[in-house]
Amino acid sequence: MAGTDTSQRKARVDPNKPVVEFIGVRKKLSGRMILDGLDFSVRRGETFVIIGYSGTGKSVSLRHMVGLMKPDEGSIRIDGDEITTMTQRELEVLRRKFGVLFQSGALIGWLNLFQNVELPLLEHTKMSKRKRAEVVQEKLELVNLWQDRDKFPSEISGGMKKRAGLARAIALDPQIVLYDEPSSGLDPVIAHEIDKLINRLRDSHGMTQIVVTHDMESAYTIASRIGMFYHGKMLQIGTPNEIRTSAVPEVQHFITGGREGAVSTRSDAAIQHGRAPGMLSQRTAEAIDAAADAAPTEQVYVLLEERPDDGTPAPAGAPSTTPELKPEAELESTQEHQTHEEKP
């Protein structure tokens, strides 16, 4: 029955029209440009995987998709409908198209697994109790958790929570399923189980799926297309093979775990000091770029003696003891000094 449903849906809408479309989306959060002109579109029925360094705002882009966050600039379209200007009520209708699997599963703590999966059915359908139980059983069996239906989220492992979260996400047979780091914190076997589930949903239910991950193995297994997210933009979008053989040095750097390829001076400097490239404050990033233009690359690393964003002092004995690193203030003055020298 689900099959005919999908084919009818496909017949009604143009299959080539993108389901999700981001056009020039910008978002600034606590002084950092998280999304900086993000452009991409996702086709119907494909599994689109977004990869990229942690802390760069991949999850933020997912939150934009369902209207939990609004962009500062740009437009986001779901099935051709502009969602950035939608009212709360319109958003509620829009969200029925989505199922979202959150990083930790986000199950409601006082409901057991059965009730958690039943929740969207209770809220949005007028199904009889028997029908609801059937649907819940179907979904929980799909993720292999039916025998644990009476357990509460606090009694089960992380992998089970994620699978239960997935069962809840697809309870209403959404058109689009979003996954936020589905394999993080899971052992390889369970992570692979989740990958198989994602593939099964694509093949049997024809769902459009968008997956944010930094697990490359999983990305190759599930992706129709992969998009590399880098400094708030899509650096490259391609099939798994195109990404694997990518000539872009930043992409090579990411997918080989830093063994090959290279990144910009800015990211390289950050990685050298164990920071995610996306986590640099706007000011430091700009300072590094400016210094990179003015000075040889080696000197740029010095600029990373940056305070953490929450304002707590950097731990003692951290890189600050390394001789070539100087405090940021001093660096800025050096930089000013340099530009000053260049002027005459």
Partner: peptide, 18 residues
């Protein structure tokens, strides 16, 4: 607060449950 930081509140909102 715990529901909020563990994304349960967001999950409710995404499921269109106010």
């Amino acid at each position: 607060g715990t529901m909020k930081v563990s994304e349960e509140i967001d999950a409710l909102e995404v499921m269109s449950v106010n």
